[in-house]
């Protein structure tokens, strides 16, 4: 464990909690893609299949449970909470995410570290996390609604990606065997997509602020 990875995990968790608290506080999920949140929950559920079989550390196990619980809490809020679900942009959040799930699964069947049940699902979760932001990106381009996507959410999401890349660079130079090319390549693609999301986020933000000022 290095400080970059720890800080990356913390900023990732904070970004999820910021979104959950924002939805719960405002009782609104306008502008938030349920499909992206469902993909994130699927990422954690398929990545942490080893939760009960491999014990890495207390930190590792606790964080896995927290990530699964917080991502499912957001999906539950957006699907079941009587007030929140009314503000969901159902007719705008129409990205066909099932094709993304299928493509990632097929890719995981082809590209993985070892052909075992757990490893294939681990690779699947890595690929899926990289593209999970797509429905949110499309929804943002369509709705331009950044009310619930606070600046802090975007900031911590960016910090999470940046810190993880620094963590991989650090591990590459300090550990002899650092062969996590699946996570690194997929992580770089994920960071590029996040940069695209951040670009549209700030465009929408500027547009919204301009309209407010007029």
């Amino acid at each position: 464990m290095n400080i970059f990875r720890f800080a990356g995990d913390m900023t990732h968790l904070i970004s999820i909690l910021i979104l959950l608290l924002k939805i719960y506080a405002t009782k609104s999920c306008a502008g938030i893609s349920l499909k992206t949140q469902e993909l994130y929950a699927l990422v954690f559920l398929t990545r942490y299949l080893d939760l009960f079989t491999d014990y890495v550390s207390l930190y590792n196990s606790v964080m896995k449970i927290v990530f699964i619980a917080s991502s499912l809490a957001i999906v539950w809020c957006m699907r079941r909470h009587p007030l929140v679900r009314r503000s969901y942009d159902k007719d705008l959040d129409t990205f066909r995410h099932q094709y993304v799930v299928l493509a990632c699964f097929v890719l995981a069947l082809v590209l993985h570290e070892r052909f075992t049940f757990q490893e294939v699902f681990w690779a699947f979760s890595i690929y899926l996390e990289a593209v999970a932001i797509l429905p949110q990106l499309v929804l943002l381009q369509r709705s331009g609604n950044v009310d619930n996507l606070t600046g802090q959410y975007v900031l911590f999401l960016g910090a999470y990606r940046g810190l993880y890349i620094i963590n991989w660079i650090y591990r590459y130079f300090t550990e002899d065997h650092f062969a996590r090319w699946i996570a690194c390549v997929s992580g770089l693609i994920q960071t590029a997509l996040y940069a695209d999301f951040f670009y549209y986020y700030y465009l929408s933000r500027i547009k919204q602020d301009t309209i407010m000022r007029l």
């Binding site: 464990m1 491999d54 890495v56 062969a179």
Partner: peptide, 10 residues
Amino acid sequence: GDIDSEHDEL
């Protein structure tokens, strides 16, 4: 399992 097979990152 051995370290490199174990996914120690979240």
